[in-house]
Computed example of a mutant assay.
Amino acid sequence: MTKDCKRIISILGHDIPLGASKEINFNIAKLHTSTAIEVPVIIERSKKPGPTILFTAGIHGDEINGVDIVRQLIATKINKPKRGTIICMPILNVFGFLNSSRNFPDGRDLNRVFPGSASGSLASRVAHRLIHEIIPEVDLIIDFHTGGASRFNAAQIRIIKEDQKLEDLATVFGAPFTLYSNNLAKSFRNACHQIGKPILLFEGGKSSFVDDTISKIGIEGAKRILNHYEMLNVKKKSSPPKEPTKFVDDSKWLRARRSGMFKAKIDMYTKVNIDDVLGQITDPYGKLHHTVKSTIDGYIININEASLVYQGDALFHITTKLKN
């Protein structure tokens, strides 16, 4: 029997039939005060069989824009499918979320310990349970991330090259850009790939910040994917993106040639040409005024929003080659 026809699925030891709504606590550990830490896994199954799609966010605890996207999928009942099953895990790293930190309390990055170990570090144990007790039941994962603390990412999907299924799904999702990027060793994306589970990684915004435009792009993309699989709730509508996603074959960081106070003068998603003014670097004393110009023709897909930069810091991420 294929996953598409499964009438009962098993998540974290719980059997869940068609037509069920279930919230299961993903018990991972306790605080030093013996207070239990529980991560809700929210499962909605239609009475009609169909695919199982998992939406995840917060693998890094400070990436709250992704958390907001999954939260809205639940709050607006987009997660109630017309057929099949939708699983939502808004916060994978609840310790990091509570502490506004990227990592687990043991200092480990959850996204660098997959597939994990049942007897390993705290982060490794969480990764192991996720891979062994949830992922086997799903047919597609959409994992929401953000950029770094001061680096604002344009909304984008990241996939590996030469995977036609992922390219097709990225086209359906309809983010402004789709970047080809290799799977990192011990990452969630790589672990899913190794066991044959397709995964779309969404990047958008920056850490510790919620941008409404990024959230909207993520939500609309999720709705398009659900509509593609005929799973979107009949009460919800999905519309095609204003422009097809641009597949990015290659890109380059433009770095600061001076240290000082930095201000960008260009908007995200803008198409720029060589010698276009992108920003300026000044000093506190009014003596330095350095104009940052583009050395590349391409689209702006990341902007450093830090007020102070050092020579060599990455300022702008610009596409250098789009797929024909």
Rank of each mutant, 00 (worst) to 15 (best):
G298D: 01
T171S: 08
H128Y: 15
N304V: 04
G116P: 06
R129H: 14
V113M: 12
D276K: 05
S46D: 12
V172K: 14
P51F: 00
I217M: 10
L278T: 02
H228A: 13
K223T: 12
T2F: 11
D68P: 07
G58P: 04
Y229L: 09
L73G: 04
L254D: 07
Y310V: 11
D275G: 00
P198D: 07
L308V: 09
S208N: 13
L288W: 04
L179D: 07
N324F: 09
M1Q: 09
K206Q: 01
A191Q: 08
T85S: 09
V309G: 06
D4Q: 09
C5F: 08
A264H: 12
P176T: 06
K252A: 15
V67L: 02
S294C: 01
Y285W: 11
E305P: 02
L322H: 06
I28V: 15
L54N: 08
S294F: 02
R125A: 01
I16G: 13
A127S: 13
P105R: 14
V234W: 10
K3N: 14
N111R: 10
K6S: 11
E23F: 03
I195C: 13
F55C: 04
A222C: 13
I296S: 12
P240I: 13
K271R: 06
E137V: 00
H317Q: 07
I131L: 15
A222N: 00
G96L: 08
K6L: 12
G84L: 09
K235M: 05
A175C: 06
R71M: 10
E203L: 04
I195E: 14
F209Y: 05
R129W: 14
K197E: 04
I87M: 12
N153L: 03
G205D: 03
G196S: 07
G218F: 09
L98W: 11
H145L: 10
I225P: 01
H128P: 06
T146G: 00
A314G: 12
I214V: 15
F177C: 07
L130S: 05
G196W: 08
L226V: 11
T320G: 05
V126D: 01
A175I: 04
G218W: 05
M231P: 04
I53E: 01
T282Y: 02
K293H: 01
G66H: 05
T291Y: 02
F177D: 06
H128D: 15
T319H: 08
P90F: 02
I219V: 14
M231H: 06
R257Y: 04
I300D: 03
V172S: 14
R257L: 05
W253N: 03
N302F: 00
T282H: 04
G312Y: 05
F188T: 12
K246Y: 03
T85N: 10
G116S: 09
P51T: 02
V67Y: 07
F55S: 02
C88S: 13
L166G: 11
F114P: 14
A264K: 12
P240D: 14
I78D: 10
G298R: 00
D211W: 05
V292G: 02
S124G: 14
S121Q: 04
R83W: 06
G107S: 07
D4G: 09
L179P: 07
E133Q: 15
G218N: 08
K223V: 11
S46M: 07
D250F: 09
T35W: 05
I318T: 07
L278Y: 01
T319C: 10
R108N: 12
K48V: 15
N183F: 10
E243Q: 08
I318S: 07
I274N: 08
A57T: 10
T146N: 01
